[in-house]
């Protein structure tokens, strides 16, 4: 009878389980402070620049979007200017590279942890999570120390006489990339681990038994099994990385600006809020596109089974 009672809906049996309105304050709060900011950005992106640059003037215009594609000379002549599109594209490229590098590093470690004895696993997973729970600012700062001309890497290389002059690593695209990978690595390892942990490694043994090599087992048996984790990891790395501010700011040294730095500048020194809002809308559009792509891939590849992986970092 246990099975029937578990599947039967209950009217009176709901006693004490609360009611949906318990969630109402939270929902109202989130509408105000999550939906609100998104809506205001879209609105601002169609308004005019304020005189002093802080805030907006409530006059409708598409000027911010025009600025995305064209630059205007002093004489008022419009010419196509791909600067901002280039930055958007670069940001997406950085995010993609970050996601792919994280993926390559994460698959071995996630599978390795999943194949340890159970009592080790929780401890190892905890070790992966700790960096995630420490300040991103400090973790980015750490690479300033490591990559600078007097830093431990250059010092070690000079000591071994491999180089006589320090290699300039800080304030390069390389530094930005390292910072991004470092920031987002746990977001890739944990969802893949969540998939790998559920995988029954006896299936791999069965495959060996049928004469498969290690590489075949990995490619044909293990990797398909962790696909939901890979997809969840790609979402959790690619999209947030798109809006990275700290790594390009502190490690790229302004030379490798990403879109977030340009947006921040519009709300700071450049004082062009509508244009900053328009750039943010572009980021949101790319986010949506990426989500749609992942949703399609997800449906095809995993029948939608990534929910658990998406929540795995908690």
């Amino acid at each position: 009878m246990a099975s029937t009672t578990a599947t039967q809906p209950r009217k009176h049996g709901r006693a004490g389980q609360g009611s949906w309105w318990a969630g109402l304050p939270g929902i109202l709060f989130l509408i105000a402070l999550v939906l609100g900011p998104l809506i205001i950005i879209v609105i601002y992106s169609f308004l005019s620049r304020a005189k002093l640059g802080v805030g907006v003037k409530w006059i409708f215009t598409t000027q911010p979007y025009v600025e995305l594609f064209y630059s205007e000379s002093l004489s008022g002549e419009r010419t196509f200017d791909p600067t901002y599109l280039q930055i958007l594209f670069n940001s997406a490229l950085y995010s993609l590279v970050t996601a792919v590098v994280c993926l390559v590093l994460s698959i071995p470690i996630a599978i390795w942890i999943a194949t340890r004895p159970p009592q080790w696993r929780t401890a190892l997973v905890f070790l992966v999570t700790i960096p995630f729970w420490t300040s991103l600012l400090i973790r980015t700062y750490a690479w300033i120390i490591i990559l600078n001309d007097n830093g431990p890497i250059n010092a070690a290389l000079e000591w071994t006489r491999l180089i006589s002059e320090p290699i300039a690593m800080l304030y390069t695209p390389f530094a930005t990339s390292v910072g991004l990978v470092y920031a987002f690595l746990p977001f890739m390892i944990l969802p893949i681990y969540a998939s790998a942990e559920r995988f029954d490694f006896r299936l791999a043994e069965a495959a060996y038994d049928l004469g498969a090599t290690r590489l075949t087992v990995l490619r044909r048996i293990v990797l398909p099994a962790v696909r939901p984790g890979v997809i969840a990891g790609m979402i959790l790395v690619f999209i947030p990385a798109l809006g990275s501010y700290l790594a390009p700011e502190l490690l790229g040294g302004g030379k490798t600006s990403m879109i977030a730095n340009v947006i921040a500048a519009q709300f700071g020194a450049s004082r062009n809020w509508p244009f900053g809002a328009a750039l943010s809308v572009m980021v949101l559009v790319i986010t949506m596109l990426a989500l749609v792509v992942f949703a399609v891939v997800n449906r095809r590849a995993t029948k939608g089974g990534t929910r658990q992986e998406l929540e795995s970092f908690l």
């Binding site: 009878m1 029937t4 039967q8 209950r10």
Partner: peptide, 16 residues
């Protein structure tokens, strides 16, 4: 299993 006996019990208890 599934013959309704538990449902009757739950109706008496007021859980159903």
């Amino acid at each position: 299993s599934g013959c309704g006996k538990t449902t009757l019990l739950r109706c008496i208890a007021g859980l159903e």
